[in-house]
Design a protein around this nucleic acid. Structure first.
Lengths: 172, 172
DNA sequence: CGCCACGTCTGCGAAATCCGCAATCCCAGC
DNA sequence: GCTGGGATTGCGGATTTCGCAGACGTGGCG
């Protein structure tokens, strides 16, 4: 009933030969299993997680703390923006002349911008915007984003209906 | 030190005149403050939250449980896909002929698709895809998405660099 | 007005959980 | 074979969670 993870106890928690280029350590099967548990319920007690992954309560606690410290995961409350009073959302595609990264940084600094990613394709940057109403959205796009020096053009996609949003990376 | 929320105790926790059209109840200031606390740390103890928002431990516990039951928020672990072994991500814009929603549903059913939203603009649907490698990504886009009957065209934006991703709705 | 129903808040004791720490184990290097 | 570092375990003590009974405030109704 517990989908026990075997993983030959205390194998390679951090095998330095498997570091990704960004310096982020790879995760072993046990840590992955711990993350999965916490993706189902971020408040699940350490003892319960330990039983599921085959580790003691203290060991789970230690690994969770390390994962948090390393920034591999965070345990947070996520909400539906609509119920929290944000009624307009949009994805904005941005084309840039000159330094793309500095524009991306400028977008990152805006509190209405939830999500910024540099892409390959017909946009240089995609940014998701969360606003309270149409006026607010219009203001952010036309007055603030298009005003940035280096922004050549933008294209907006106003959200009509959010169909799916999961946080289950690795739970497949 | 605690940014106390006053809120004239036991005022309108759920004022039925302020229901949004979707039937989701509006949140009062105290619940919002609780959510903010949990957005900073999803495992923060109820007593600490209570001190911050001016409520007893039991009351906070009750409200959090209700927020979870109502689906207003969820407390989960979120990770950086890269560190969990997903090396390719892309946003895909989809154009549809016929029923948009049924295509959106089909995308929603795919485990590689993290995010599906119906939009106004030059795409009918935006979908975010999380894959293990290029082959996997290619397979999902060309074999699975473009094969859906009703999909007229797609345009892909492969992620080069994720600059920002927050879960702080309402914390502004 | 009195009364009741309903929802929320509080206080409190019992059970479960979290936390820190010292001891142990395991592997790699010398 | 010995040693060092990291991971794990076991264990009390402090803290937190949990369930529940009682209090409080509001609104409906005879």
């Amino acid at each position: 009933m517990h989908s026990e993870v075997v993983a030959s106890r205390s194998a390679d928690q951090r095998d330095s030969s498997r570091e990704s280029r960004s310096g982020t350590p790879q995760l072993d099967a046990v840590s992955l299993a711990i993350i999965q548990q916490l993706q189902e319920d971020g408040r699940r007690p350490y003892a319960a997680i330990g039983k599921a992954v085959g580790l003691s309560e203290a060991a789970v606690r230690q690994r969770v703390q390390k994962l948090l410290d390393q920034g591999v995961m965070q345990i947070v409350a996520v909400t539906d923006p609509l119920t929290v009073g944000f009624r307009r959302q949009a994805m904005v595609g941005v084309n840039v002349e000159g330094d793309v990264e500095s524009i991306a940084d400028a977008l990152t600094a805006m509190s209405e911008v939830e999500y910024v990613v540099m892409t390959a394709g017909s946009f240089d940057i995609l940014a998701e915007i969360v606003c309270e109403d149409d006026d607010h959205l219009l203001d952010v796009i036309n007055k603030r984003i298009r005003a940035l020096p280096g922004v050549r053009s933008t294209e907006s996609f106003v959200y009509l209906k959010l169909k799916k949003q999961t946080y289950m990376w690795g739970t497949r």
